[in-house]
Simulated assay, not measured.
Amino acid sequence: MNWRPSCQLSALRLRAEILASTRRFFSDRSVLEVDTPILSHSTATDLHLASISASVDLPHQPKPIQMYLQTSPEFAMKRLLAAGAGPIYQTTKSFRDGEFGKRHNPEFTMLEWYRPGFGLRELMSEVADFITAVAGLETPAVITYQQAFQQYLDIDPHKIDDQSLYQITQDRTGISADDLSRDDCLDLLLTHCFESQLGCDRPVFMTEYPASQASLANVKEVDGVLLAQRFELYAGGLELANGYDELIDGEEQLKRFQIDNEERRANGLPEIPIDHHLVDALKSGLSKCSGVALGLDRLQMVMQGASSIHEVIAFPVDRA
């Protein structure tokens, strides 16, 4: 058993600099640092996220209750927004099961912030300012989801018919598409065919995802196509950040949670208790805002030129 950290001590010093620079960046912009629970009674319902559960003994409870280590601090932060906290950020540990490798560790460091009154373009501008100021990266270019698929695969992801999409997925990835959804196919093509090329010359924002990939973002019709109002930031072939024009409709949020659980049942996945605290917070009134989650471990990988997340964290799960 190797007791030593997997990263060099210089990486620990760089992490300290990143954290200090992050605090200065948001302090200078009067964004409040907050702290929310890692343990919660609910968690993300997204089919593609696997949460880590914990059995918790509480006084006067007849048996242990099931809780979850949070995949991100989003739900609790939105409750603070609904309570009138104003612009907020936090740097926290987040957890996702089944993710381990050169780019993943089940426990990782997330920077998340929310900007009431900001549209998506304003938030993208602030994200660009952040990675320039804290990481010394270039200002990102912008490419739409459609443009990326046309550039790298010569297909229109919004208009290609299902059968053609399934066929090109099998041809390009070698993975059978028989039991895959349309979004599964698009995601496979992205990750297997060109994600590693995104942001290699300079960072890039990818925007205008299909509405079916909206997650917790608003949806807008553009030229007859429904598009999710969200972006992802890539640098060096790594996805660094995921930003949204946030959904603030409580009823719509509840509907999306329910649909996620229906799809979970259909796919043999465990249902997730709906976070009614969040739903009620949205129903109480949340002003228009945009928010973004950025992986600090991956940002440091880009800064160091690291090929593995193990080079930027002290003790990955196999050494913890």
Rank of each mutant, 00 (worst) to 15 (best):
L282V: 11
P64W: 01
V142T: 15
D183W: 05
Y209T: 10
L227V: 15
A50T: 15
Q8E: 13
R264C: 04
A44N: 11
D46R: 01
A235W: 00
R79C: 12
D46H: 03
S287W: 04
L180A: 06
W3H: 08
L58V: 15
D154M: 11
F95D: 05
T43H: 03
K63W: 03
V127C: 10
L9W: 09
Y68N: 07
S27V: 14
I88S: 01
I38Q: 05
D245E: 13
E126H: 00
G98Q: 05
Q8Y: 04
Q229G: 04
S284V: 08
L111E: 06
A211M: 06
A128N: 05
S21Q: 13
F149W: 03
H41S: 12
F118R: 00
I143F: 01
L9A: 07
M301F: 06
N261Q: 04
E262P: 04
S212V: 15
A50L: 11
G237D: 09
L14I: 14
G136I: 07
T71M: 02
A141C: 09
R202C: 14
R79D: 06
D245H: 09
I52H: 02
D162C: 03
S181M: 09
R24F: 08
D249Y: 00
L32K: 10
S21Y: 01
R172I: 09
H41M: 11
R115A: 14
E263W: 12
